[in-house]
Amino acid sequence: MKKFLAKRLGSGSLAVLFSIIFNFVIIRLAPGDPATLLVGKDNPNPEMIAMIREQYGLDKSMFEQLGAYFNQLFHLDLGYSYANSRDVWDMIVERLGPTLMIALTGTLIAVLIGTFIGVYAARKKGTFIDQAICSISYLFDSTPSFWLGLMLILLFSSILGLFPTSGMYNLRGNYTGFAHIMDVIQHMFLPVLTLVLLNIPYYFRIARSSVLQVMSEDFIMTLRATGMSEKKIFNKYVLRNAIIPTITVFGINLAYMVTGVSMIEITFAWPGMGRLMLDSITKRDYPVISGIYLVLSISVAIGMIIVDIVYATIDPRIRIEE
């Protein structure tokens, strides 16, 4: 186990290292220059551009810049945003919380509901209910997130007036304590609902197909032949085997969660990481982009290690080599 952990940590750090270099290089290869963007289009002053370049070290070669960046990281410093004149780390921490709030809540609810419906549909395979659920799931599966978000705003905010259209809390409210929490939950509702509706089909299909697959396995027939009741076979054998793909997919999805909600964040003006990332890309704010990718790649690496460990404990075929 220790050896496995060390091995995975090693390969994980290597992956993080490569992703830092890759992201660092690729964003600089993209057309566009932060200095010109900072100065503005109307009256570009060449001297000022050169000054900014020198100040941020953009005039040096890419190799030197990379070296400087690693030196910075070594001192646990993610750098300084060009566009916002703030510490990158502070900006990320500020945005990470709100993103995780809607991403985690939405994904968890979607996993639970999706899996539940999937198992139900698998049991009713071929019936009208099954076909109806499948059709609805395809409908939501092919819906763009921003469109669904807008439709929900139209319905719940404009027509019914139940929930606020955007933001994370009421700026004029000045609520504190419990009232503040309720206010945030009210603001969270629509983005989370959008995420849930879009993710349910995903988990629904995995649950449905893996339940059906396990039910068609030979060993289920064997259990029937030994005289076990259908209920026990289903609860004890089918479900436990069918849940493995859901866990895998959930683990992989954790990695994409932050980027996946960015469209929703923009639709609902939610102050999250996804929005920060897109803003920074348009402004060519290199330190912020690199910082975000660093945090993301570390979380992906950790997520994968956790999935591996969970996987090995539920499926003996994937044993961790001693």
Partner: peptide, 13 residues
């Protein structure tokens, strides 16, 4: 009954 494929006869876990 005894089935044809012994590899699929048992729950792998």
């Amino acid at each position: 009954i005894i089935f044809q494929n012994p590899f699929d006869t048992f729950d792998p876990r």
